[in-house]
Amino acid sequence: MGYYLGEGLRSIKNHAMMSFSAVCMIVGCLLIMGTFTLLAVNLEHMLGRLEAENEFLAYIDETYTTDQAKALESQVLAVENVSSAEFVTREQALEQYRQDRQDNELLSELPASALRDRFRIRVHEIGQMEDTVARVRAIDGVVNISAQVEVAQGFVLVRNIAGGVALVLVAVLLLVSIFIISNTVRLATFYRKEEIAIMKMCGATNAFVRWPFVVEGAVLGLNGSLLAFFLQWGIYQFVCSAVIQSNGLSLLTVIPYADMARQLLLTFLGTGFVIGVGGSLLAIRKFLQV
């Protein structure tokens, strides 16, 4: 084991420039991957919060009696994607209204008949809110709807795009990184082609020849991922503070880096390792056929 490590490190030292550029490329790839993943994770998180408030109000025709209005509940519940429907009478609504705006003298005089009975409706999937709203609106007796569909739709769209972009980027960059490492190790093997041929001629197994290069790839990959992890940290803090400062609506919330650090570090290390080892194995495959 000491031998493999020694040989692997020796090779990195012998190709210092190339090893350095390989690490830089890995760092770059991981950073792009990490940034988009963090963006997607944060959007998902915000969406989750939004979904916790994923309700809208359906107002009932004021000519309906309270009993008639309440009878619509089964119809509302039958609509696809509706998870719950809470009936609120106009009296309850007024009470709520007053509580929310205690300081307003005028409102205290407002008669309950000025308001409508309503259902407070929650949905399962915020992405399908628009559909759901349309179906509830189509129920006889429902006269109006108040929903923030646009906000929800916007978030879903951005989340989906970011998620998709992150996925594609991760796949592409993974391949790019493996390719880069593979080229680095390929050059290293090229310089040591003679040496490999001699080893094989002396009866060395493929495993014996392969190990130092695998170690080399793994060391490069792990170093790159460590570096990327800390750089990502810096970038994230910087972007987060900017977002929080410019955050007029408190709609935007960010997850603290520390909350994700462990998982991110493990992911980076894992990815770096896979890139490094995968690239090495790819590179030395054909040199072993002596």
């Binding site: 094989k200 001629m201 002396c202 009866g203 060395a204 197994t205 493929n206």
Partner: peptide
Amino acid sequence: PHMRRTLGV
């Protein structure tokens, strides 16, 4: 590899 170990080249 095992065969080659019986040879010196």
